[in-house]
Design a protein around this nucleic acid. Structure first.
Length: 672
RNA sequence: GCCACUGUAGCUCAGCAGGUAGAGCAGCUGAUUCGUAAUCAGCAGGUCGGGGGUUCAAAUCCCUCCAGUGGCUCCA
């Protein structure tokens, strides 16, 4: 088998790469990289060129493999369903899909399609490239309007492009592809979904078939195994096993209910965050859940968020909205009295529960509920205070993740303005004629802005505030030694922002923390402070959340730990089992001693066998199971079994001391 | 919202060429008094997601509503 290591060779002119590779004794390449361009192995260079073979063990090779697997899928489908019209079939991060205009397929048909794919793969059909003119292509694909669209969009008039054939199947495609279908033996079709053509709801529905392909059966099996493991860790499944949350789809669809166990977990996280906030100067506040619609109109949420808000009108005619965000509440508190420049920054935090109407198809477990609690924070700052505040928040995120998730990999994104499209943002415009400045957001390029003072249309955007804020974000990141990706055009319309992504134990990346600079809301609410010259000055607002949403964070924790939480946040820290009823008294004594020491203990004094008790409590995932019988009672000890099923006997006092230490220090590991 | 699939006891699931509901676990009662992943026996538990229709007869077929799951970003 060829290794994925870098091999370079010089390919001869006027011969296929395949031949040059063969001469060099290299087998199994699915494509080649010639001067950085991916090409088919059967392409023929007109001049000598240095090439690098591409193998399926590399990301690039895997992509080629999966793209070809998508073609194989389309071939199988069109053979089984001659009326089916394939649209597009790209590779994805962990497989491929193909969107096809056809009758919806069920599970059984999916297996048939997969079976046909295997047959075609075992035939090892040659995959050939054909260079065709636009006219020829249009003719060849005239029966398939989707392909016609693509040809019209992608091939210039009088131009040429390529099609690939295998057996009787032909697809319009720029490639590259594996040389023959024999490379596509380790495949699996996964799910059927549906999608609108070009993701446009007004266009026809297409059937999307997801599948995956690997270089060999071993890696495919590994993938399928991991996929199953991930499904076993699904927070909805474990949440039910541990009795953390319940949904009542009839009475409150999309709204999580915390059971006693789930509320313990949430409280532990809240307590952690409360401590962190206090340590970093964030004062805790609480705000109403319902406001008159006036505030939502003034904050700008109404314009943007109305379709996602729970709104109602009372008999007296007053209209109210349930909060989808906490900021207006914090603004109300900040605005209660004028602030001096000496008082800033003012920082408010709240575990604020917000409500957003999510469309029925977009809800899902704890990751997309209609109610969630944000560890929300709003800082009211002077422009020159951004940098130090950002740095401090970054240190809060690091402290949070290292305490709760160990040392996960963090990646940072800096989303900044796209200066070529100022109409997307709230910006200060300056009048070239009279010098008046105005904060505005154009709704489109076409619409001209008018100077509020002299009615001139000679306004130009002034990026100074944006630049200054963005520079401070950049500087904060750099001073913290953080490498980051800068994304132009990804900023919020009201300001630039930093997003933090966290990689969990399953290798999945989640966007959790966000730090956003906001020029908009202070403008809308007329927030100011009094500067050293007794003049009003602009307040900058910072929105920040570290967990993001408690619910989503809990879902990630459940899946990250497979429910086996660090003891400090575990709803059931100790489960006490007497060997038989004779020892219930001693078990009760142990249990009470634990409770006295603020340890969450549960005593099982039921008339069941010890074995059965241990068996049935497992899904609840207690941090420790304690078994006590004659030996323990006589010696004042406990027999402890930890999350890894390791057993140990120790004195009750020692157990309490060690466990207390483990809990108080928020240890991720078990001491016992 | 759109498309597909699914909805039977607290949980996991069987029953569906139409004849009026079944298992295991959990629960309750009793026996057993047990050394680290199921002791035994008995009992109870469901207007089969809601509504409408077809039929002598519907969990099963049809319509409709509700809910859950996967997908609706990756464009030859």
């Amino acid at each position: 088998m060829p290794k994925a290591e870098e091999k370079k060779l010089v390919a001869r002119a006027n011969r296929t790469f395949e031949e040059s590779l063969k001469e060099a004794g290299i087998k199994g390449a699915v494509a080649v990289l010639a001067d950085g361009v991916e090409m088919d192995v059967r392409d023929v260079p007109t001049a000598e060129v240095t090439i690098q073979p591409v193998f399926t063990e590399t990301t690039m090779g895997l992509k080629v493999l999966r793209h070809s697997a998508a073609h194989l899928l389309a071939q199988a489908v069109t053979e089984l369903y001659p009326d089916a019209k394939p649209n597009a079939g790209p590779p994805t991060d962990d497989g491929f899909y193909y969107d096809i205009d056809m009758k919806p397929v069920n599970q059984e048909e999916l297996s048939q399609i997969e079976g046909r794919m295997r047959e075609l793969a075992s035939k090892n059909l040659r995959i050939d490239k054909h260079r065709l003119s636009k006219k020829e292509l249009l003719q060849k694909f005239s029966h398939n309007p989707y392909k016609v669209d693509k040809i019209l969009e992608n091939v210039e008039d009088g131009g040429y492009s390529t099609a690939y054939s295998q057996g009787n199947f032909v697809d319009f495609c720029k490639g590259p592809h594996v040389p023959s279908t024999g490379f596509l033996r380790s495949i699996k079709l996964l799910t059927v979904a549906s999608t609108h053509y070009k993701a446009d709801e007004s266009r026809p529905m297409l059937v999307r078939i997801y599948g995956t392909a690997f270089p060999d059966d071993k890696t495919l099996k590994e993938f399928l195994h991991n996929r199953e493991e991930a499904m076993k860790r699904d927070h909805r499944k474990i949440g039910q096993e541990m009795d953390l949350l319940v949904f009542n789809s009839e009475w409150a669809p999309g709204f999580p209910f915390y059971t006693p166990n789930g509320f313990i977990l949430k409280q532990e996280l809240t307590n952690f965050m409360r401590g962190l906030n206090l340590k970093h100067g964030w004062q805790e506040v609480a705000t109403p859940h319902i406001f008159k619609d006036l505030i939502w109109k003034q904050s700008g949420h109404y314009a943007k968020y109305k379709p996602n808000m729970f709104l109602f009108t009372l008999p007296d005619g007053d209209s109210y909205g349930v909060k989808p965000m906490n900021c207006p509440g914090h603004v109300t508190i900040f605005a209660r009295e004028p602030k001096s420049y000496k008082e800033l920054p003012v920082k408010y935090s709240e575990a604020g529960t917000v409500y957003r109407y999510e469309k029925s198809g977009e809800m899902g477990g704890l990751t997309r509920p209609r109610m969630f609690t944000v560890d929300d924070g709003h800082a009211f700052l002077r422009l020159d205070q951004i940098i130090s505040e950002i740095k401090d928040i970054i240190s809060m995120t690091k402290e949070t993740y290292s305490t709760i998730l160990g040392e996960p990999t963090l990646t940072f994104d800096l989303s900044v303005i796209d200066k070529d499209a100022p109409e997307n943002y709230l910006i200060t415009y300056r009048c070239k004629d009279c010098g008046t400045e105005a904060e505005a957001r154009k709704t489109s390029m076409a619409e001209a802005l008018i100077c509020p003072n002299c009615s001139s249309t000679h306004l130009e955007p002034d990026f100074a505030t944006w630049d200054q804020a963005t520079d401070q974000l950049r500087k904060a990141l750099e001073e913290e030694g953080i490498s980051y990706t800068e994304n132009p055009g990804e900023a919020a319309f009201y300001g630039p922002k930093i997003d933090v992504h966290v990689r969990d134990a399953l290798g999945r990346s989640w966007q959790l923390s966000t730090i956003q600079v906001d020029f908009f809301m202070p403008t809308n609410f007329g927030l100011y402070y009094i500067n050293s010259e007794s003049k009003h000055d602009r307040v900058i607002m910072l929105h920040r959340a570290i967990f993001g949403s408690y619910e989503r964070f809990m879902a990630i924790l459940i899946e990250n730990y497979a429910g086996k939480f660090p003891t400090w946040m575990s709803p059931m820290q100790v489960y006490v089992v007497p060997v038989s009823e004779k020892f219930v008294d001693y078990a009760a004594k142990v249990h009470e001693e634990l409770l006295r020491n603020d340890i969450r203990s549960t005593l099982d004094s039921n008339q069941e066998t010890m074995n059965k008790k241990i068996k049935t409590i497992r899904p609840r995932r207690p941090s420790y199971i304690i078994v006590v019988g004659e030996k323990e009672e006589e010696s004042g000890t406990v027999s402890v079994r930890n999350r890894l099923d390791k057993q140990k006997v120790l004195k009750l006092e020692d157990f309490v001391i060690q466990l207390n230490k483990e809990i108080k220090s928020r240890s991720l590991k078990q001491n016992i």
